[in-house]
Simulated assay, not measured.
Amino acid sequence: MKIESIKIKNFKAFKNVEMRDIPRFCVIVGANGSGKTTLFNVFGFLKDALAHDVNTAFNKRGGFNEVISRDCTGNIEFEIKFRAKDTVRNNPIITYSLSISQKNGKAVVKREVLKYRRGSYGATWHFLEFSNGKGSAVTNELDGDTDINELSREYQTLKSPDILAIKGLAQFEKFPAVIAFSELIDNWHVSDIHVNEARNIQQADYAEHLSTLGENLSNVIDYLHNNHKSTLDKIIKILRQRIPGISKVEVKTIETGQVLLKIQDESFDKPFAVRYISDGTIKMLAYLVLLYDPKPYPLLCVEEPENQLYPHLLEELAEEFRAYANRGEQVFVSTHSPDFLNAIEVDEVFLLVKNKGYTTIKRAAQNEQIKAYMDDGDKMGYLWKQGFFDQLGKQ
């Protein structure tokens, strides 16, 4: 699956913004407080609303009045266009729109629509449309030969107007487009790996996927060793390429029932406990475990990967993120690092600029001067460090 564009209205600092033609590897830059974390939080909000309801999602963020943009009235709105591979014929762009209002102090789903074009030249049709808890969804959308007048609609009334219609309908195989979007949102992941968390000795436990902070790194490596040995071997091979001298990564359950992670340097006979290993080695290992997960996330968001990582490793890490995207998933990365940006192409970068309390989003490729410098061989990080992005923010 791949997100093609995003529109956001009245969500915190995003009063009215749009990102178009989003690449599989998307890099977000901007000053502190410009809204990089808020952009990722849009997916978190939708995931919480899908898992529970919109009021629960708002309450986790301080309530509706804390989320809606300051001094703004009206509804909070999202529009996400995406492609769902192998879900519907010809893999069209699917549009999901959500408008949330407040009624008697409670958030309600004012309107929820899922639509896409049936065929190369057909009109765009609403295959799901709900308002205030009532609506309908098409049940025979997979039959590409069905005339639009023969589409079967199923009318439903939700238990509460604050529940997303895609939550209930995603349980049924006859709504494949709904399932595709639900899986995209439900399986997104934000990563903010902290070395100190990854160093901690964990109680032995079953863990298939790396957590947000990376504190279960040893348990995930133990899982890979027992269930996906070839994947772990590949991770170690890449780690040795990225950080010369590493010969082995192993986990051991000690008498207390905890899992101890050890890394061996080829210059020594015995491996070292992870607490003695450099920050850069630990963090690179954690990112490789994340990026080579046997069940990768369709949407991965990574916050400032440069923290606690050697500058000379950042370009190599950027290559690993791009490889993850090229394998078919999508990754958003926020960064301040010129070293990381030096590995980034101009079409991959979006700039967030905050002005008078609200954030705007611009593409680096919008600036002809930046494009010209890149065409002449300059690197993105040098241009960022020298202030050329300030000009883009003023456009």
Rank of each mutant, 00 (worst) to 15 (best):
F45Y: 09
E303H: 01
T157D: 06
G62L: 10
F389W: 03
I243W: 03
I235M: 05
G62Y: 13
P305V: 08
F127P: 09
T37G: 08
G122A: 08
L309Q: 09
E18K: 15
R24H: 13
L224P: 01
E150D: 15
Y116C: 08
D347V: 02
T87R: 12
E150M: 13
R111Q: 12
G122H: 10
K174G: 07
I93Y: 00
H336M: 05
H225E: 13
Y297A: 13
G62N: 13
K15S: 08
N326G: 05
Q369R: 14
H225S: 14
F25E: 11
Q330A: 06
F388K: 14
I80L: 14
L313I: 08
Y121T: 09
S131M: 11
I370G: 09
V42W: 01
G119H: 07
I8K: 01
Q241L: 10
V220A: 03
R111N: 11
T87F: 12
V220D: 00
I277K: 09
A318M: 02
E4G: 09
I243R: 02
H312Q: 13
G144S: 14
N65V: 03
V29N: 08
G357F: 03
T157F: 08
K60H: 08
F175L: 02
Q395A: 12
V353N: 14
I148P: 00
S136L: 12
I185H: 01
T37Q: 00
T146V: 15
F389P: 00
A372W: 05
C26H: 11
A107D: 05
N75P: 00
D265Y: 11
L290T: 14
P271F: 08
D205V: 08
K110Q: 15
I179E: 07
R20W: 02
L288P: 00
Y373W: 14
G35W: 04
H52K: 11
M284K: 02
L341F: 06
P338L: 01
E215F: 07
F58P: 00
K385G: 01
D376T: 04
V108W: 04
N75L: 11
Y373R: 14
H194Y: 11
D86T: 10
V178D: 04
T157C: 09
Y324S: 04
F40P: 08
E266G: 00
F272G: 02
F181C: 08
A31G: 03
E208Y: 09
N140T: 13
E173T: 05
G387L: 09
K110S: 15
Q258H: 12
E303Y: 02
K362H: 04
L184W: 02
S99L: 04
Q391A: 15
G44C: 00
I246R: 11
G122T: 13
N226R: 14
T56S: 04
L351G: 03
R111C: 04
N10I: 07
L341C: 07
E208N: 07
Q391T: 14
S97H: 06
Q369E: 15
G122M: 07
E215M: 03
I282T: 05
N149P: 01
N16M: 07
K106Y: 05
I148T: 11
E329A: 10
V109S: 02
A323M: 07
G133E: 01
